[in-house]
């Protein structure tokens, strides 16, 4: 059994597959659609149309860079407001033409910078959460690497939420958590243990629906096999989401969101 901190290292492994790898290997006829029609385009989020097992779909995901140059271009996978607004614009396109949506989460978080704040980072995420809840088309979300807080959730509301075995999904990065609690980012390992950010924990807490297995040692040790496993999980869950009648599907999504949390009354 791997510790949460070990899984975090695997989730961040530089050779792990990214959203673009998923699109390249599991989708066909990908056409990237860019820009939010408001301010600009954000390379940290990729969006477009494609076919998945011959079904026309919309695919959206955060993209970290593979090398230094791409990492800078993609802002290390940390989206700005225009990224979230572009994502929603393309989701509404899917809704209009009654095509399913697949999103892939892999981000350290929404970008914390002056320009992002100026252009309403919080509003962009909040608006996505509200609008995604009522999308009248199937949405399948998969956390493939790092699920960094609100920045991840901003494209993460759906009918089915999948998560790779070694992916992490957390309210705050372990480094950030450690810096707040113990004033020491070096205590990230301790924080990772506290935060319950693994797929196993999150499935138990009712936050994700399905854990997608990875090859022993992590996805980066065998990308081919990892993507094959992801493909069959996506196919199965998309078929399930599509099989439900639209009005019923939205109702179920609301009910699922309604039940999130543990409280006493």
């Amino acid at each position: 059994m791997l510790t949460p901190y070990e899984r975090l290292q695997i989730a961040r492994a530089p050779k792990r597959f990214y959203t673009l790898d998923v699109i390249e290997r599991l989708f066909e006829d990908f056409t990237e659609l860019r820009g939010d029609r408001r301010y600009g385009d954000d390379a940290a989020i990729i969006a477009g149309t494609a076919t998945f097992h011959k079904t026309p779909v919309v695919v959206i995901g955060q993209q970290k860079g593979r090398d230094t140059k791409e990492r800078r271009m993609r802002n290390f996978g940390m989206p700005k407001p225009e990224g979230y607004r572009k994502a929603l614009r393309i989701m509404k396109l899917a809704e209009k033409f009654r095509r399913p949506i697949l999103t892939f989460i892999d981000t350290p978080g929404a970008y914390p910078g002056i320009d992002a704040e100026e252009r309403g980072q919080a509003e962009a995420i909040a608006y996505n959460l509200r609008e995604m809840a009522k999308l009248e088309t199937p949405v399948v979300v998969t956390v493939i690497g790092e699920g960094g807080s609100g920045g991840a959730l901003g494209i993460g509301v759906g009918d089915r939420v999948l998560m790779l075995e070694n992916a992490v999904y957390s309210v705050i990065s372990p480094e950030g958590c450690a810096a707040i609690l113990w004033k020491d980012a070096a205590q990230a390992e301790r924080a990772a243990n506290c935060l319950r950010l693994t797929a196993e924990d999150l499935q138990r807490l009712g936050i994700i629906d399905r854990t997608v297995a990875e090859p022993v040692g992590g996805a980066h040790t065998d990308t081919e096999e990892s993507l094959r496993l992801l493909d069959s999980a996506l196919k199965e869950n998309l078929e399930f989401a599509v099989s439900i009648k639209s009005s019923e599907r939205v109702k179920r999504r609301f009910k699922k969101l309604r039940e999130l949390g543990r409280w006493s009354e």
Partner: peptide, 13 residues
Amino acid sequence: GTLSLMQMAKVSA
């Protein structure tokens, strides 16, 4: 943890 994060989606819905 992530349960808190999910409250954002819940109240927005």
